[in-house]
Every structure is written in C-alpha cells, then in structure tokens.
Nucleic acid binder design. Structure first.
Lengths: 189, 189
DNA sequence: GCCTGTAGTGACAGTTACTGACACTACCAG
DNA sequence: CTGGTAGTGTCAGTAACTGTCACTACAGGC
C-alpha cells in the first residue's frame, strides 16, 4: 500500500473533491463510497472516519457559516429589531458566499437533482436556524419569537440568494435587505 | 406461512402501527425493518413495497395535509393578501390536527430524539412549502414571492403549533393568526 | 362453476452503506 | 531514543434496500 501523509486534513480535502467530481460525473446514486475513497487515495474506512455518511461530504462548510452568523447576531447593536438583526447576520456572510461561488454552484447542481442530498440540505438549514435562534435568545428575545425570527430571516435570505443566482449582476447585500422588506408587505393593507 | 388478507391497506396500517410502537419501545436505531414487518405479520420485502424506506412509515399523512392546504389556497377569495391566504390555509387544517392529536404527539416524541427522522420531517415540510408555492403561483403571485410567502407562512404555523403543544387550552386557529401578525412586527418601528 | 387478469405477497439472492476491533505507521515532545 | 497520539489499512459483520420469480387471493366475464 502507498505511504500516505499523516495530515488528515489533506485526505479530507481530497475526499471532498473526489466526491463532488464523482457525484457530478455519474450521479449520487451511481457513486459508491468505495469509489470516492479510491479516487481520493484512501480506503472506504478512512472516508467514514472523516465524514459521517455518504451525504455529509458535500456539506462541510456549514460550521464556518454558522460561526459567522452567530457572531454577527451576538455583536449586533442593542435595540436593533429582530429582523434587522437577521439582515445584518446574513450580510456578514456575503463575502464567504462570493468567494465560494463557483464550487457552491457545482454543489447546488448536484443537490438539485438528488433528493437524498436535498434532504440533508434542509437539515443543515434547520441547524443554522437553531443556532440563530440560540443567538437571538441570548439577546433577550423570547425563544418562540427568536425561532420565528430565525425562520423568517432564513426565508428572506434564501429568496435573496435565488434572485442572486438568476441575476448575478445585482448586489447580494441589497437583495437581502429587499427580501426582508418584502416580508413585511405580505400581510397586505 | 400464514394466509394474509389481500387488501394491501390493512398491511399498510399494521406496518404503521408496528413501526410507531417499536420506535417508541426501543428507539429508531435499535429497530430493524425486519422487526417492524414481523410485528405487522408480513415480510420485510412487503414493508418496502409499502414504504420507500425505514423513515417513510412515520410520515404517511403528508399527502392528505398537502391536499387540504392546496385546496384552501386555491379557493381563497381573490384580492386576499398573500399572508392572510396562508393563515386561511393552515386554519383549514386545524380539524385534522385536532383529530390526530394523540398519535401526532407520539410521533413527535420519537422524531424529537431521532436525527434521521428529523431530517425526513424537514423534507416533508419542504414538500409542503413547494406545494403551497405552486398554489400561490396559480393565484397570480410571482414565484419568488410565492415561495417567500409559503416559507413565512409555514414558519408562523410552526410557531403556533409549538405554542399549542405547550398550552393546549388555547385555540390553534387563534394562535395561527397571532403568529402571522407577529411576523409583521419583527421589522421594528 | 371455470377462466383470466391483477394486485398483493413470500422467498431468496445480491449490493452497498456503515460500524467495531485491531494492528500499524508517521510524527511530535521530551 | 522513547513514549504518546493521530491517522490509516485490514477484516469481519450488520442491516437497509433492490431485483426477480413464483404463488395466492379476489374480481369480472363467460
């Protein structure tokens, strides 16, 4: 067997790249974890030491995203209303999204055609909402309201993100603020 | 082997009951699909003819829920603003929720302690949001706004549902309307 | 009463995601 | 040079899920 560098992060990186490639080339269902491992130059067992399951390999960035969001909420000015706090948080994440845009695009294409991956994506979004709920609660907002705020904020963010994907010329920061405003118009009158 | 009635819906019903029992008795992870099938008096293969996977057996009611929601949106008065349409839709589903309350409670307990089931629950919620988005689009609302509305409406509904679980004395219909109102206050000023 | 089609099922073999246990190797601290 | 630690390979095993085929209950026409 080949001698492999002991730095685990390298194997992890290669596994991520190999999985994305294979999922794009032959589809998620037609790819086995053994194939991913082989392409990355490790064994299947090593794959499962780095990622909990076959899906998780595509969702490695979530922790970083969550950290930025939570920090932005925590450092928001006091007295700022709940939804503006959300706008602030999602705005803080814009640079990361811009930096990762091309890989994110490839990921999104695979997820869009794979129900199993969509399911995981929903769970990751829910985890972000949980984290945002906690962060809002720490600001003194009651938990039910905090949860509602986090969900509504996430909905606005997704709306902005989709608009951004359609018309990349627009500024994502502006789109986020507009989506938040739009929420407040849905009640009519 | 025993002679089994040919009416598939009976096996399906027994499988649902057996799965809920076993998941509650020993936990989801410690339950095998073979055990569910045995308790329901069928083979494992028959289980997978009725349900796509080990999780789906707990989420059989979604189609009915979706039908009611979509119908309520379709038959809502013209000129009603988007969010009030959502309130109307979720209000229409209240009787079903009241009727199923005890089973729903047991289901919720199992789901609450099982990440794999939570993931599926998120996916089911997302499917409802998709259906609501389509229904709103049919009313002439643009798709991005329809999607935002469906997500915000679902967030309000969940907020009402949680409040209802905590204080069952309150009227769910009222709680839904209040949650929708609360959304409009999140912007401040 | 018999024939025929259809839907539901049992039996069985096979693939693959995932796990536990153990041994080995690169590297780091002293 | 030594001992500890983290990452890995190997192997065996479990359980979710699938394909295929044969069989059985039942409904309808004749």
């Amino acid at each position: 067997m080949q001698i492999m560098p002991r730095d685990g992060s390298q194997a992890r990186t290669r596994l991520r790249a190999a999985a994305l490639e294979l999922y794009r080339e032959r589809g998620y269902d037609e790819t086995t974890t053994a194939q991913i491992a082989t392409r990355a130059g490790v064994t299947e067992r090593t794959y499962f030491r780095h990622f909990a399951d076959k899906r998780e390999v595509l969702f490695d960035g979530e922790a970083e995203l969550r950290a930025i969001l939570v920090n932005a909420v925590a450092t928001a000015p006091d007295r700022l209303a709940p939804l503006p706090v959300m706008v602030r948080a999602f705005t803080a994440v814009v640079p990361l999204l811009i930096a990762n845009r091309s890989v994110a695009q490839q990921r999104a294409e695979v997820i869009a055609v794979t129900p199993a991956l969509q399911e995981r994506a929903y769970a990751k979004t829910a985890a972000l909402i949980d984290a945002l709920t906690d962060a809002l609660t720490a600001r003194g907002i009651t938990r039910p309201t905090a949860r509602l705020t986090a969900q509504v904020g996430m909905a606005a963010f997704e709306r902005a993100n989709r608009a951004w994907a359609d018309t990349p010329a627009h500024d994502l920061t502006t789109l986020i603020a507009q989506a938040a405003d739009e929420v407040l118009t849905l009640g009519g009158t």
